[in-house]
Write a protein that binds this DNA or RNA. Structure first.
Lengths: 259, 259
DNA sequence: AACTGTGAACTATTTCACAGCC
DNA sequence: GGCTGTGAAATAGTTCACAGTT
């Protein structure tokens, strides 16, 4: 029962989800895009936009307008026919559906290059994801503040996470340590895990696991180059322009670099 | 015509791809998984495995066996009925289809926290992706070697990339600089781009663009937590356990941390 | 006249289930 | 008997195209 497995909705394709209330089930693919729309909307709001049409917003988000409208329709009807969407309203609705109205404390395990970068990032995407705990095994690091938070030992993950009410665990350890760290995060009560380690994690079903894998990304790019060079003139078939559906870090350091 | 847009195969759904030769068109989703199988196979080979069944391999990769077999069938028929797959053969075939038989030189633009981590990583996933150039705007960084390679100025991207035959550009700059950097990478002849900056990039169609977005990942996790807490008892509907389909960094630093 | 919301058609992806081979 | 390869069925996701609203 690995959580990483894409076991759809389980064996039963049932669950007619008689959702009486608001939003109907939002497809996974749409959720990823909603996060992108949110970012675009924020930018637009900063530039003083009050309303947007599906055409404008979709262009800025790099999707087609029908898809955008369909995605937004999962939230309910917040647009005005003949006019468009109110930037403020849409922003709020997306934040609501994405659960951004509450804080999600983040713990980062593995303070190597990447972990360090994440820790220094101090406070993920536009508030809402404060880094609350850091973990490593290196004795030289324990107790040292990184990005304002003292590093604790990996052994203390369960206790510290429970105490600080961490809800998201980020694994940036080497592959060998990832599963143990995962288990401890789960023991500490985290609700979801973002895994940067190149291993398939096994976690209980109630824990959401997502992974970010640089090797996979590069190899997918390699595949596209290869399939263009190879046989068929155009790589055009089922495979072409892609988007990982995942995004990136958001603020600049003193040097103006990401993370 | 933004390359990041998931504009399928373009307006024409045609291209019956009369692939005479080997592999039939490999679906995008399968490509991502092939990279994972490859990693698992490598691990198994190290442990002395000579053959694997679809059951074993799929379990280790966190997918179901039917999916694995279907994925492998895109490569051709390299299994033996009643027996399984030869680890060595399968490894080679996957490497071939992913285009890992040739080197892909990588350039990293934006030597901030993340860029630094990537540069130090020195040589991405199991050879095949050597870092050949680094770029930044910071005068204090220009000329300084990071992970063995001197940092060049962003202005020199086209020249340096062309000269060093870079085929993959990694963007780790702040969002504001990303599009310019992208344009320069394209001018320098890179064939694909991995974008860590939280912006929608516009690139010519022949350039593959993939993005990795931490904000999106976190917000997707947030969504799942929210939808569990909220209305419906189980989050079960169409949305449940997920995998970004992307993976991670691969080697450990002296401290044993990823990247 | 401009623009949203959405059923219906289409395409992609996953899963089933079983024929065929060792 | 165990296991692969794959059509066919089921499910998920995208795009069309147009009715409905302001």
């Amino acid at each position: 029962m690995p959580a990483v497995t894409d076991n759809g909705s389980g064996p039963d394709g049932s669950a007619p989800d008689g959702d009486a209330g608001k939003a109907r089930a939002v497809p996974e693919a749409a959720v990823a895009r909603l996060a992108v729309y949110l970012r675009v909307l924020t930018t637009m709001a900063e530039q003083g936009a009050v309303t947007v049409s599906s055409e404008e917003l979709s262009a800025a988000a790099g999707v087609n307008s029908a898809k955008l409208r369909k995605d937004l329709s999962y939230l309910g009807s917040y647009g005005v026919r003949g006019v468009g969407y109110e930037v403020g309203v849409l922003t709020e609705e997306i934040e609501r559906i994405l659960g951004l109205t509450r804080q999600h404390k983040v713990a980062v395990a593995g303070i190597g290059n990447l972990g360090h970068a994440l820790a220094n990032y101090g406070g993920f995407p536009g508030r809402g994801f404060p880094v609350a705990a850091l973990f490593d095994v290196d004795p030289d690091l324990i107790g040292v503040p990184v990005g304002g938070i003292a590093v604790s030992h990996l052994d203390d993950i369960p206790a510290v996470c429970a105490e600080r009410q961490v809800s998201i665990g980020v694994i940036a350890t080497p592959p060998g340590a990832a599963q143990v760290v995962c288990d401890r995060l789960v023991a500490g009560g985290v609700e979801c895990i973002l895994n940067f380690a190149p291993v398939v994690l096994h976690a209980p079903e109630h824990v959401q696991v997502r992974k970010v894998d640089l090797a996979v990304e590069l190899q997918m790019l390699s595949f596209h180059v290869a399939s263009r060079d190879a046989g068929n003139p155009a790589d055009g078939g089922p495979v072409s322009v892609t988007s990982a559906g995942t995004g990136v870090l958001s603020r600049a350091s003193s040097n103006g670099e990401v993370v």
